[in-house]
Amino acid sequence: MSGLLGASTIRALAKALDVRPTKTLGQNFVTDANTVRRIAAAAKLDPTDVVLEVGPGLGSLTLALLPLSAHLHAVEIDPRLARALPETVRVHAGPDAAKLQIHTADAMRVTRDEIGEPAPTALVANLPYNVAVPVVLHLLSELPTLQRGLVMVQSEVADRLCAPPGNKTYGVPSAKLAWYAEARRAGPVPRGVFWPVPNVDSGLVAFTRRQPPQGDRVATFRVVDAAFAQRRKTLRSALAGWAGSPTAAADILNAAGVDPTARGEALTIENFAAIAAAKPTGEQR
């Protein structure tokens, strides 16, 4: 494995670049090499994998991933960090530095054409807390070649992403991720391994792409959003605005084989897809 960055090296790099981690960009750099090794190992990469890393920052995780992959696309929104990463990798990664391809872009808007070839097969990233869910969902939608991933997110977000139906933390993130993939918790990450130290703990989420339910994803996600906008209400009431009235909602739910008195947290993503499909043609909106 490449020579990894220690805490003193990371701080020296940041000072040289005049980089001060900002909450706006959700920058919290991992300074513990053992944690970086654990994340890279937990990703279970194949030597043929093309990795997509979001927010490589100063390069801690990048250096651990390069020897384990065939190619690495690094998407970095901060131009200063994007410009500095090649030199850091050249110094510390040896021959593996040739595998790195940097994209100065916003991961919530980056397209498959911008990423280009080779197409990514695995997502491995320490994601900014404030955009973790939309980034994961966008990338799974935009990059159908992504087959699996391991992301580090806020611990509570990890719970939401992995929660099954019926769990108190099951909601919009859980249901939408389930459209694309099966997800599980892959371990905790204590706050003390970061600089600056956040006021919350982190967690690892591993996911494997699955065959999506039959139906239209956009229409299904509208149902998910409506169902959880008023999660304490029954589906008959929560979906009234989406369907046009409580009576229309009940009719659609019955046609989909879903109890109108149930609540959103009890439904699988297949149930939501069935509800979307049961809405009469011409009323999809």
Rank of each mutant, 00 (worst) to 15 (best):
L85M: 09
S237L: 12
V151F: 00
A183E: 02
K176F: 00
L58H: 08
R20Q: 13
S174E: 00
R83Q: 12
L68C: 11
Q27N: 10
M108P: 00
G59C: 07
P196F: 11
Q101W: 07
G282E: 09
R232D: 08
D32P: 15
L65C: 10
A16R: 15
G215S: 02
K168V: 03
A249C: 05
A84E: 02
G203M: 14
A243F: 09
R38Y: 02
E117Q: 12
A43N: 08
G26C: 07
V224Y: 01
R263Y: 05
R112Y: 02
A183M: 01
A227Q: 09
A273F: 13
R112P: 00
L235A: 02
S8C: 00
N126I: 14
I39F: 14
I77F: 03
R37I: 07
Q101P: 00
L52V: 02
S69H: 05
P67F: 09
L45I: 05
A186K: 02
H103K: 11
H92Q: 12
M1A: 14
R263F: 04
I39T: 12
R80E: 07
S60Y: 13
N167F: 05
A41I: 05
G6R: 06
P86N: 11
L61R: 06
A227N: 09
D96V: 08
A40Q: 11
K233R: 09
V223T: 07
G244W: 08
V50D: 07
S202P: 15
L100N: 10
N34P: 06
R109A: 09
T281M: 13
Q154T: 04
P47Y: 14
T247Q: 14
L143Q: 07
K15T: 13
D46K: 12
A33K: 13
R20D: 08
Q147N: 10
V135W: 02
V205E: 06
R20L: 11
R160N: 06
S2A: 13
H92W: 05
R185H: 05
I252T: 13
R80H: 06
G241A: 01
D259A: 06
P188D: 03
P213D: 04
K233L: 00
R191L: 10
V133E: 03
N28V: 10
S2Y: 13
T281L: 15
L100S: 11
L25Y: 14
T9D: 10
P95K: 15
H71M: 01
A238G: 07
W242A: 12
T111S: 14
D251N: 10
